[in-house]
Nucleic acid binder design. Structure first.
Lengths: 216, 216
DNA sequence: TCTTTCTGTGAAATTTTCTTCACAAGGAAT
DNA sequence: ATTCCTTGTGAAGAAAATTTCACAGAAAGA
């Protein structure tokens, strides 16, 4: 049973949505203001928050920021009567999962909700293990350099990498390549050249995210 | 001197933009198709790519994905004649820096470009050092747990943390707290309670990003 | 063929990280 | 005052990560 918080100042719309979603097997709660939404979300776990952008006092955008801060795992779907590209852009940048505009077909909303839940299902479960592998690979700067190198030039040979890194002892590089291979970040083909696996590319993305994020 | 790649199938628009931007002190290049854009971007570093969404053959959205993959640092501004919220949402989700719609005022574009450059200036320079600290802090799972704990409950005392983590030797926790303190992720107030610094909150965000990212 | 380069292994040495333990000052509670 | 809990410090040891070195087979070039 998934918990959905409906945030809108229009009581009728809340009631409608609530009824429909309850009928579809979701558990719903309502909040009529941004402040109330934040309080409820802080007190209780929601899987999804349906958030109206236009509300008196605390704007939906502020609520979005606040919710993201206190509950980063909760998926937020922005809803608005006056959809503008700018608002949509801002909302997604701030971490909303999706953005739909009134009037919406109920099917459209249901699909959007399912999609968001799918996302969180993934994020939730499966692999907390990967985390350890990935982070311990990333914790070494030589390995980070190797990943970057391979992202720029797929299929490098050992000595190419060694020279590029300007490390004199090639076995040192072999050591790190082995670790990267064991964590599934890189692979080798028959010609012995190294390249990033799918996992490796994800890892690279992570690195980039981290870098850009840390310097903001 | 900043390099801008203008990607649009409309030659006249390209020429116009190019002239204006050159006049403003940017160096520009043009590409008339998605394919050409990707090739050029692969061959040369651009700071900004102005990318038309609607193009024959390879759609702007595909080009966006491709560019993000090969040049994650390049900022991409999507431009489109038929702005829709959906497109904007998709573009930003896929990593575009911004999204503007034709017809746009040239000032608007210039501001958008400056904003994007500002972003990359930040991401570029400043701190590659933080990276090492942060990643080595994150590489240990006890420390990750501490960060998560503190994110849920600011201002915990030593023994609170110790009990929450179910670790019997408190000095072990002290050890990790010290490391976190030294890397500037946490601090203590006069009452000895620990809390996340601003840096620490960023680090937490990183962790969340990584987690959600790794399980996709 | 002979030499050189590339790709690696395995063991030992070193460094770094983490854990454990002995101890102690300060405050609160009895 | 005595006892208990909290918050540490510092040294020592254990474990893990990294580096260095000696060596070797396979492939490539001369």
């Amino acid at each position: 049973m998934k918990n959905i918080l409906i945030v809108d100042d229009d009581a009728e719309l809340r009631a409608n949505l609530s009824e429909i979603l309850t009928g579809k097997g979701y558990r719903t709660e309502e909040a009529s203001s941004g402040k109330e939404a934040v309080e409820r979300a802080a007190a209780q776990e929601f899987d999804i928050v349906l958030l109206d952008l236009m509300m008196p006092k605390m704007s939906g955008m502020d609520v979005l920021s606040e919710l993201r801060k206190i509950k980063p795992k909760t998926k937020i779907i922005m809803i608005t009567a006056f959809a503008t590209v700018d608002n949509a852009v801002e909302a997604i940048k701030k971490g909303a999962s999706d953005y739909i505009s009134k009037p919406f077909k109920i099917d459209e909303l249901l699909i959007t909700i399912r999609r968001a839940l799918e996302e969180s299902r993934f994020e939730e479960g499966i692999k907390r293990l990967d985390m350890d592998y990935t982070l311990s690979s990333l914790s070494n700067s030589i390995r980070r350099k190797i990943i970057k190198l391979l992202s720029m030039k797929d299929g490098m040979h050992l000595m190419e990498i060694v020279r590029e890194l300007a490390i004199d002892d090639h076995t040192k590089v072999v050591f790190h390549l082995k670790i990267l291979k064991e964590s599934g970040i890189i692979e080798q083909d028959k010609e012995k050249s190294y390249f990033l696996t799918k996992e490796g590319k994800k890892t690279l993305d992570c690195l980039n995210i981290l870098e850009s994020y840390l310097s903001k």
